[in-house]
Amino acid sequence: MTRNEIIAPENLVYHKPTLMNDNHMHYCPGCSHGVVHKLVAEVIEEMGLTDHAVGISPVGCSVFAYNYIDIDWQEAAHGRAPAIATAIKRLWPDRLVFTYQGDGDLACIGTAETIHALNRGENITIIFINNAIYGMTGGQMAPTTLLGQKTSTCPYGRQADLHGYPLKITEIAATLEGTCYVTRQSVQTVAAIRKAKAAIRKAFENSMNGRGSNLVEIVSTCSSGWKLTPVEANKWMTEHMFPFYPLGDLKDTTIE
């Protein structure tokens, strides 16, 4: 069987999700955002919620998320995505409402909105991309930057006595009464991507079933900010990020 015979529409087993349009993504090569965008689009498609999904895009690298996934989007002021999501979900309880935020947006300027929205148990899902750096503005130190990690604003590495400790927002969220499902995932391998997809699906289902708020943290790479190639960035993340940000479910109230 020749290659041309294999490439036939009936043999197609995987392609870009149809919800993702053909716009060129502005992300750097190898950026984890692209994979997470694909997962979000796939899950919404599989749940049949194409016409009922509303995403809240943040300020940060993923500010243009609305250009790539063909669902309804609302742009939020920096860090205020969970507050906007609260309003939209309360006005339209039958919609799937999720926010898509980076660590600078969610864990720094938007900490108050994030914690209070989660604590109120709003039926929303927060997708939290944690790459331990401010990617869009040029690789400055973020609250999630690891101790010793070099960024443009801590060129000698982050020091606890000078800059404080990295913020584990997901661990904080797991202690809140309003949260239903809090998990930390990654997208560096095929197996991790499948797990992350299952986590996003579970979070979306919980928010549609009115079980409370859901937080899915995706530990991600920022090859430009870390000054590594995409392949090296994945290795660096596995070696340095995972010991401090261990993967797995932190809270799941759907399991009794």
Binding site: M1, I6, I7, L12, V13, Y14, M20, M25, I193, R194
Partner: peptide, 21 residues
């Protein structure tokens, strides 16, 4: 046609076809 390449592709560039001969 295991789809591993397409799953990890951040830009969704890869379409995978598979057939059992």
């Amino acid at each position: 046609g295991c789809t591993a390449c397409a799953i990890v592709c951040p830009d969704g560039c890869i379409s995978v076809y598979r057939v059992k001969s």
